[in-house]
C-alpha cells in the first residue's frame, strides 16, 4: 500500500481550501496537488477529496472495484454502505439517478450525500450558465460525461431545497462543485 498525501496535514489543508473555494463559488475550477500511489480507477482530484474529507465517521459508497474500496478502507477507514446511507459517494462510471442518494431531512438537510463524480473534462468559460449563491453574475462550465438530461433533472430536484445532494465534479487533478443551491441553464 502506497502513502496518500505526501504531507497529510498541509496537503489536506490545501485540498480543503480548494474544496471550500469550489463549494463557495460553484462552477469555478480548482486544481489540487495529486496524492501518491492512488488506485487506477480514481482521479487524483477524487482521491485528494477522499483523503481530505472522509474518515471513520462518514459511511461511503462507491461503484468502483475492489482496489479502490480497499484503498479507501485503508486510508480513510470509512465503512462501505448502500448508496442510500452514504455520507459520501464516489462515482467512477455512469452517474446513477441522484434519487439513489440520501437528501437529508428538512430539519437536517446537511445529511444529504456529497457525491464525488469523475468525468472526462471540465472546461471553464463555456457551456452551462450557472446562477445562484456564490456567483456574482454567472459562471460558465462545460462538463463532458454527464448523462443526457442531467441539467433538467437537477433543476427539478432543486424544488426540494433545503434537502438535496451536493456534487464534486472531478477530472484529472481538477475539480469543481455544484452545491444544491446552484441553478443550471443549458442554453444561455
Amino acid at each position: 500500500m502506497k502513502p496518500g498525501f505526501h504531507d497529510p496535514v498541509l496537503d489536506a489543508q490545501a485540498c480543503f481550501r480548494a474544496a471550500m473555494e469550489a463549494m463557495a463559488r460553484p462552477g469555478r475550477v480548482q486544481e489540487i496537488v495529486p496524492p501518491e500511489g492512488i488506485p487506477n480507477a480514481l482521479d487524483p482530484a477524487a482521491a485528494a477529496l477522499l483523503l481530505t474529507l472522509v474518515d471513520a465517521d462518514t459511511p461511503f459508497w462507491t461503484d468502483a472495484g475492489e482496489e479502490t474500496r480497499g484503498w479507501i478502507a485503508f486510508h480513510c477507514g470509512a465503512p462501505l454502505v448502500p448508496p442510500g446511507d452514504a455520507a459520501f459517494a464516489v462515482v467512477t462510471g455512469a452517474l446513477p439517478p441522484l434519487s439513489l442518494f440520501r437528501e437529508g431531512t428538512d430539519e437536517a438537510p446537511q445529511d444529504g450525500t456529497t457525491v464525488i463524480l469523475q468525468l472526462r473534462h471540465l472546461v471553464p468559460g463555456e457551456g452551462w450558465r450557472l446562477l445562484g449563491p456564490g456567483i456574482e453574475t454567472e459562471h460558465r462550465l462545460r462538463v463532458d460525461g454527464l448523462p443526457e438530461g442531467f441539467a433538467t433533472s437537477w433543476d427539478a430536484r432543486r424544488a426540494a431545497f433545503p434537502r438535496g445532494v451536493d456534487l464534486f465534479l472531478c477530472a484529472g487533478t481538477r475539480f469543481a462543485a455544484l452545491p444544491r443551491t446552484v441553478r443550471i441553464e443549458e442554453h444561455g
Partner: peptide, 12 residues
Amino acid sequence: IRRAILKGLAIP
C-alpha cells in the same frame, strides 16, 4: 469541521 463548513456553504 471542514465537512460542516462545506455543507454550510451548500445550505446558506
